[in-house]
Amino acid sequence: GLEHMADEEKLPPGWEKRMSRSSGRVYYFNHITNASQWERPSG
Rank of each mutant, 00 (worst) to 15 (best):
F29M: 02
S36T: 12
E39A: 08
S42N: 12
H4F: 12
Y28W: 05
T33E: 04
G24M: 05
G1A: 13
A6L: 12
L2H: 14
S22A: 12
H31V: 15
L2Y: 14
F29N: 00
R18E: 01
M5C: 15
E39P: 04
A35N: 07
E9L: 07
G43I: 14
S42I: 11
R21A: 15
M19F: 15
E9C: 15
I32N: 08
H31D: 03
N30C: 03
F29P: 00
G14A: 03
S23K: 08
Q37E: 02
S42Q: 13
E9Q: 08
G1L: 13
E9W: 07
M5H: 12
G43R: 09
Y28K: 00
G24F: 04
A35F: 09
G43Q: 10
P12Y: 02
P12M: 02
S42W: 10
A6M: 10
Y28E: 00
G1R: 13
S22F: 13
S42M: 10
W15K: 01
W15Y: 02
H31N: 12
F29Q: 01
M5A: 12
W38Q: 03
E3M: 08
T33F: 06
E16K: 04
E16H: 08
I32K: 07
P41D: 01
R40N: 06
S23Y: 07
T33Q: 03
P41H: 00
S22K: 15
S36P: 02
E9D: 12
N34G: 15
R18G: 02
P41K: 02
P13E: 09
S23G: 08
T33N: 05
W15E: 00
E3V: 13
G43Y: 11
V26A: 07
V26P: 07
R25P: 02
P13N: 08
R40A: 07
I32E: 08
K17D: 01
D7A: 10
D7N: 11
L11E: 14
S42E: 10
S23N: 11
W38F: 08
R18P: 00
K17G: 02
A35D: 06
L11F: 02
P41G: 02
R25L: 07
K10T: 13
L2M: 13
N34Q: 14
F29T: 02
D7G: 10
A35E: 14
M5R: 08
Q37T: 05
E8A: 10
P41Q: 00
N34P: 00
W15H: 00
E39G: 08
G14D: 04
H31S: 13
P12W: 02
R25S: 04
K17P: 04
K10E: 14
S23M: 07
R40Q: 05
E39Q: 09
R18N: 02
S36R: 15
L2C: 15
K17H: 03
K10V: 12
W15N: 00
P41T: 01
E9T: 08
H31G: 05
P12R: 01
R21K: 14
G24R: 08
H4G: 12
V26G: 02
L11T: 02
Q37G: 01
E3R: 08
E3G: 11
E39K: 06
R25Q: 06
T33V: 03
G43D: 12
A6V: 12
P13C: 15
E9A: 08
K10N: 14
Y27L: 03
S42R: 10
S23C: 09
S36L: 14
W38P: 04
R18V: 06
A6Q: 12
L11S: 01
Y27C: 09
W15F: 01
Y28F: 07
F29G: 01
N30S: 05
E3L: 09
R21H: 13
P41A: 02
T33L: 06
E39D: 09
R40S: 06
E9V: 06
R40P: 07
N30R: 01
V26Q: 05
I32S: 06
Q37Y: 03
M5W: 12
P12T: 01
R21Q: 14
Q37H: 03
F29D: 00
K17A: 10
E16L: 06
G24K: 08
N34Y: 09
G24A: 05
D7P: 10
A6D: 13
G24N: 08
D7H: 09
H4R: 08
D7E: 11
T33P: 01
G43L: 12
A6K: 10
I32F: 13
W38R: 05
F29Y: 14
H4N: 11
